[in-house]
């Protein structure tokens, strides 16, 4: 897989306040065509900023460094007109809240038609036919009639399907989905995840799935990157990340999802992530880490290769496999 096709983020940094607050710090990841990459992190980890940056959607006061290559072209250096062209056909996005992302006074078929016509020179009638076909593609029954409905006439799951249809309208090569199912009930969530997976396979799109939910990401993605306090702290093939995490934070996240009734308590990670502006230069997880040593607090820790295609930001990575089994037993509920 060459870095020419798909999305390739290189050493991305996003800072606010004249560089005093670095929200995203040296993030690199790639989403090759046809593959699904998962980006996991808690609120404030920088995962949403990273994914929005890929579409050139950064707050006005943000300063970005590094490169975001979309089919070899740097998104960060594009003019507004270039961005407009690349959004939709090159890369498209599905957000968490489909109600606030759709225009409430525009019929959904019309919304999709507008996207198609803004990227292609085709007649209104042809665009409308394509819009209906797209609605059918994302599993909306009775699409010709439903195209005339307004967003409020759909359920949350159906609205998210319409958002996906809009994202697909210009045939993007990469689809970014930022918490696409967080606002949805579990059964609807399953349907949307299945749809995203099917579209990735059939359209050969790259998929960047961003979520706080490790299980959601793992169910769809072949590779996972874990973000903590603005940095990627671990990245690798999904099965390796789940079976053999090499960074204590990943191990802790996995342990906290265990529902073993014999344990009587959940395994918790003590404390909470350091807020923006109070992040240490050294390992950012040190204050919560059960393996912490003086060396962890001594200086910056780099992302290091720990196995085939797997990297972890931890100097005690060799001790992490033994940690997973009893993570957080001590002080579990502090």
């Amino acid at each position: 897989m060459s870095e020419r096709t798909g999305l390739c983020i290189e050493n991305l940094s996003i800072a606010f306040d004249q560089g005093r607050k670095v929200a995203v710090d040296g993030v690199s990841l790639s989403v090759p065509a046809g593959e699904a990459m998962g980006l996991v992190g808690e609120s404030g980890s920088g995962k949403s900023l990273t994914s929005r940056a890929a579409l050139g959607l950064l707050p006005k006061n943000a300063e970005a460094g590094g490169r975001i290559l979309l089919d070899g072209q740097n998104v960060l250096e594009m003019t507004a007109a270039q961005l407009q062209r690349v959004r939709g056909a090159g890369i498209a996005m599905v957000f968490q809240d489909p109600m606030s992302s759709l225009n409430p006074v525009v019929r959904v078929g019309q919304s999709i038609t507008q996207v198609i016509r803004s990227h292609e020179n085709i007649s209104e009638a042809d665009a409308e036919k394509r819009a209906v076909a797209l609605m059918e593609r994302v599993g909306i029954r009775d699409a010709p009639a439903r195209a005339g409905s307004f967003p409020h006439e759909f359920s949350g799951g159906m609205r998210q399907r319409i958002m996906i249809a809009m994202a697909l309208a210009a045939k993007p090569r990469v689809l970014v989905a930022d918490e696409p199912t967080t606002a949805l009930d579990v059964i609807v969530q399953k349907n949307i995840l299945d749809l995203l997976d099917q579209l990735r396979r059939e359209e050969g799109m790259g998929l960047l799935l961003v979520s706080h939910d490790l299980a959601v990401v793992a169910s769809l993605c072949s590779r996972i990157a874990v973000m903590y306090a603005g940095q990627i702290v671990e990245e690798g093939p999904t099965t390796d990340i789940l079976n053999r995490p090499r960074m204590p934070y990943t191990a802790g996240l996995l342990a906290s999802t265990r529902r073993d009734k014999s344990l009587k308590r959940l395994t918790a990670i003590p404390g909470s992530p350091p807020p923006l502006g109070a992040r240490p230069e050294s390992c950012r997880f040190a204050a919560r880490c059960p393996l912490v040593t003086a060396a962890c607090r001594a200086g910056a820790v780099n992302l290091m290769e720990v196995g085939p295609g797997q990297a972890a930001r931890c100097i005690r990575t060799a001790d992490v496999p033994g940690l997973s089994a009893n993570f957080g037993r001590q002080g579990a509920h502090v």
């Binding site: 009930d185 490790l214 999802t257 009587k264 959940l266 395994t267 918790a268 992530p273």
Partner: peptide, 30 residues
């Protein structure tokens, strides 16, 4: 946040044990 959820769940379990509290716990996560 995911890494904090378990702390709060464990707190509720501790309070039940310490105070004999009865709890109705409502959620969507089966």
């Amino acid at each position: 946040d995911v890494s904090v959820q378990a702390q709060v769940i464990n707190l509720i379990l501790d309070l039940r044990d310490r105070l004999g509290l009865s709890v109705i716990f409502i959620g969507h996560d089966l």
